[in-house]
């Protein structure tokens, strides 16, 4: 469903500190299952996820989503695609402090203008599903790491995206919580969603739920294993 052809990404192009984060990536990502991008820090995992998730555009190459060329879309359309197709879980959770758990979860839906009741019910359902029903009215700064991670996941799902992208989802969690998050991500694939994860945590790429592991090194793909 997502195809990358000769995709490169460079930062600070033309300057002395130029950094080629991705070089010449050719990749086909299918619908369904969990795909993990593994590799050491700095290998380009996050950069690849930002390109796949329409958060950034490649310096060179083409990216298509279901046959539609994304790499030359203007920002507005890219946002449009992004918010209907992708849900993000960031490494630092990136919840908005001062707002409640419920408000944080509803936030991505505000610009879509969904009827309030409907949105509220959807958000509450998600929180219940992730065992956060009792925390709905708490401010996010009081959450534990696991709760914050689950809140972030609920927020990623509020617009019902086909694809969930999680950058290092276990980086801030102990192994018990990491397994819990993997289980939740596994459930998403059961519902028919596609999950992309970046991680350098063996616990993640050796997990039973994972369908494919793509290994990056220095901005290039050095391994592609299906399991």
């Amino acid at each position: 469903m997502i195809q990358l052809d000769a995709v490169s990404k460079a930062f600070n192009q033309g300057q002395p500190n130029e950094c080629r984060a991705l070089r010449d990536i050719d990749l086909r990502l299918e619908r369904g299952g969990i795909t993990v991008f593994k590799g050491p820090s700095g290998s380009g995992k996050t950069t690849l996820l930002t390109l796949v998730g329409c958060l950034a555009r490649p310096t060179a190459g083409r990216i298509t989503l279901d046959g539609r060329l994304l790499s030359n879309l203007p920002e507005r359309f890219l946002t449009e695609v992004r918010r209907h197709t992708f849900g993000f879980v960031f490494q630092q959770f990136n919840l908005i402090r001062g707002l409640t758990v419920l408000e944080n979860v509803m936030l991505p839906a505000y610009p879509l203008g969904r009827p309030y009741r409907e949105l509220l019910n959807a958000a509450r359902d998600l929180l219940d599903r992730f065992g956060l029903g009792a925390k709905a009215a708490s401010k996010v700064e009081w959450l534990s790491g696991g709760e914050a991670q689950r809140t972030a996941l609920a927020r990623a799902l509020i617009n019902d995206p086909a694809v969930v992208i999680a950058d290092e989802p276990t980086a801030n969690l102990d192994s018990a919580l990491s397994r819990e998050v993997l289980a939740l991500l596994g459930e998403l694939t059961v519902q028919g969603r596609t999950v992309f994860i970046s991680s350098h945590d063996p616990l993640v790429f050796e997990a039973a739920q994972v369908n494919r592991v793509i290994e990056l090194h220095d901005g290039q793909i050095v391994g592609d294993r299906r399991c």
């Binding site: 507005r76 946002t79 918010r83 960031f90 990136n94 505000y110 610009p111």
Partner: peptide, 12 residues
């Protein structure tokens, strides 16, 4: 930045 990343447009 967060709002943009989770789907808000510049216009929003």
């Amino acid at each position: 930045g967060i709002l943009k990343a989770i789907g808000w447009e510049t216009g929003d």
